[in-house]
Design a protein around this nucleic acid. Structure first.
Lengths: 153, 153
DNA sequence: AAATAATTTGCATAATTATGCACAATAATG
DNA sequence: CATTATTGTGCATAATTATGCAAATTATTT
């Protein structure tokens, strides 16, 4: 299942790679670049993709180019964040979040940036994040808030 | 003299103020906002203004909005960039750009951001920038491109 | 597995932005 | 001060991007 979802994810990744590695001046150009990489879509789809990815248009002396929004990295991450998370578990006092290998730091960074009221702090390893709730009494509430912002169901 | 120049500056300032203080979704809206502030210009002029100011278009859930480019503060400087530059010299292989004291970093940053095809890299001190051309054979071309984007005559 | 719901995409085109050109305004020069 | 050069602006429109809608694909439910 989710062949389609993978396709979208793949396309989005490629878009980010392309606009990071070279100057992309318009969406028609991007259509061609994707085609060269075996992905066939129309300008309309790219318009939607770029919006979803939070890609900004920046004017330069050479013309307008697309760029990953520096202030919007989290936004981009949020879309794919749930895909990086394996599980969220807890005992009476601590929450443990498991991610795919190497993703813990990034996910923890995102959690920290959101500065949740119910979370005192986090520590991230390679694929595991330890999350300390404000109070062990309200840990369920903390988990709820956490799942909420990372989009984990 | 330069009543006109002041007008432009005033308009640019107002544009920056407006897009910083509220959501501006398109240039037609901006035309109206300026009009309310006693400045009458057309969309065409605003298109040019926004480019000069380095204003970026950022997609949001509410639609596309204009924003001062966080990484592009220097872009605003472009107008004054040539005023910061003392000289552009070179030998057979390297270009040396001299600026007024303390300005080298900012100017180099600007050059880097423009990602010129003819330039491999730059190193900036306090008032001097070393610029490495793609090839020493085409160094004249490099200098031309460089002067071009920094507006140095 | 069939039926239903939800999502994705292309097409056509609306909406928006960028720009060539001509003219006007300003600055520079003699 | 007249002349020439430079810069800024509007107009008209070209270029680019966004979107309503329908069809197709994928996911969910029964």
């Amino acid at each position: 299942m989710t062949k389609k979802l993978q396709d979208i994810h793949k396309r989005h990744s490629l878009i980010k790679t392309l606009i990071s590695s070279q100057d992309v001046f318009n969406q028609t150009q991007l259509v061609k670049l994707l085609k060269q990489n075996g992905i066939k879509v129309t300008q309309a789809t790219l318009s939607r993709d770029l919006t979803e990815l939070g890609v900004v248009r920046v004017p330069t002396t050479k013309g307008v180019v697309y760029k990953i929004d520096s202030t919007g990295v989290e936004k981009t991450l949020q879309n794919h964040l749930s895909e990086e998370i394996v599980s969220v578990q807890s005992n009476e006092s601590i929450i443990v979040l498991k991610t795919f290998p190497g993703r813990a730091q990034g996910v923890a960074l995102f959690i920290d940036k959101n500065n949740l009221s119910e979370i005192i702090g986090t520590v991230a390893g390679d694929d595991t994040i330890i999350i300390v709730p404000k109070s062990i009494k309200s840990i369920d509430k903390t988990i709820q808030q956490l799942k909420n912002i990372i989009g984990f169901k």
